[in-house]
Design a protein around this nucleic acid. Sequence first.
DNA 1: CGCTACTTTGATAGTGCTCAACCGGTGTGG
DNA 2: CCACACCGGTTGAGCACTATCAAAGTAGCG
Lengths: 251, 251
Amino acid sequence: MTFSTAIAASTPESVATAAIRRLSALTPLAQPDLAMLARAADDARTYPVRHSFLTLGRPVAEPLLVLQGWAARVRVLPDGRRQFMSFYLPGEVIGATHHAMPIASATVVALTECVVCPAPAAAPGSALAQAYAIGAALDEAYLLGHVVQLGRLNAQERIGDFLLEIYERLSLAGLTVGGSFEMPLTQEMLADALGLTPVHVNRMIQQARRDGELMWKSGRVLLRDPERTARTIGRFSPQVTAVPIVPDSDA
Amino acid sequence: MTFSTAIAASTPESVATAAIRRLSALTPLAQPDLAMLARAADDARTYPVRHSFLTLGRPVAEPLLVLQGWAARVRVLPDGRRQFMSFYLPGEVIGATHHAMPIASATVVALTECVVCPAPAAAPGSALAQAYAIGAALDEAYLLGHVVQLGRLNAQERIGDFLLEIYERLSLAGLTVGGSFEMPLTQEMLADALGLTPVHVNRMIQQARRDGELMWKSGRVLLRDPERTARTIGRFSPQVTAVPIVPDSDA
DNA sequence: CGCTACTTTGATAGTGCTCAACCGGTGTGG
DNA sequence: CCACACCGGTTGAGCACTATCAAAGTAGCG
């Protein structure tokens, strides 16, 4: 209940506002879907940092919709090296097992305090089902982007690319304010996402600051010129709008 | 028709043998499914090296079952840097779009001459559907493994891990002979998969040879002691058998 | 025989890592 | 109210791993 109060305190917002905003951004949702989500949010539960939502090799329970907070898929090597493989932000679904694989292929832990609720089952063909599908596709696109990032970008580019991706993702949920956003990760966590050392992450961030690329103070990041940064990295942004939204007849 | 002749020439083998063997290894297939596969293989087509099965941002056509050869998902940065994100080996499916995303999130190219056929649609609940589902889960597990590899393994470990993974995957298709297997990738391609330089890949391979870890001659690799190598890297192998299968009669 | 593609080798530079210490804010207990 | 501990961020020195550039060696193929 530390920094999340800033969001939860403002009046007409429910705990599910950001998540609903993101899903609506993927596909405009109709009333029944919104009602389902509101109802599901009544079962919201709060989990502390380091809580494991899923454990590698253990069965997957129901899919969870993240309402607030950050979670991540992580793998820890026997010698202690750690790698974050992907992140779950508000409006994203943990354990959306499109394929009927009952076994978790990775551990999912809470990076911050997290509020989650059961992801309501979408009626086949509904807008919510569409939103889930797009979400799953984005998931994979982010993962592919992560591979490129780790394989072919240098430290500075990785940091820029990562922040741009987070910026885009949080924007979908309405969690950015004028190019700035909450970044609850420590530099050590960032290092574990980017395949770097905490010390080196620190140095590269400082250089980016000196170069006027970003501001980063007390858990909040401001990207000075996202477009320019994206261009210099050659960042590829998965386009949500790539899906033709044909309202009348679809799958 | 270069090295693949070694496989295709032997008599009772069809062009689909390896693929069928892999799918059967994922889940024992019954007669109707096998018949479907055999029929689909009649529509097999051969594509040359560098053929694009899918192109980033373009619509996805029908899913394709790889019968022979290797393909890969690739991303090329504006400045020419290249990264392979995942591979498709015989028995694996290109464009298995579990989520209804009509747009390709990556380009898929043939790394060798490839024989592919349309992946026959599986009846819901059939063994083939189950095989596809397990295949999709493995796909994701390999991708997650790739992230860890690029993020937290050094050059030698990456090479070892990669070869072990390929060894396991080819084993499912029956394409290994006593710990050795065809490895059609050039060292440059390997570098693009592992996020390294061709020169450095070459040096690390030579060191692995000197250390007695492997033999590598004219496109064929022999791992001397896979278990030991796996242990020293701390490799995590996704378990196919995690899915309950009735034990008494298998392939 | 000469091409082309791939592998190998050498020398040198640079990016990122390791180790170690210090700084600053925050929470806790005396 | 201050001492202390703790966590995360910051800094420095030195080193290791990997990249870069350039060239030579090798094998298949027309």
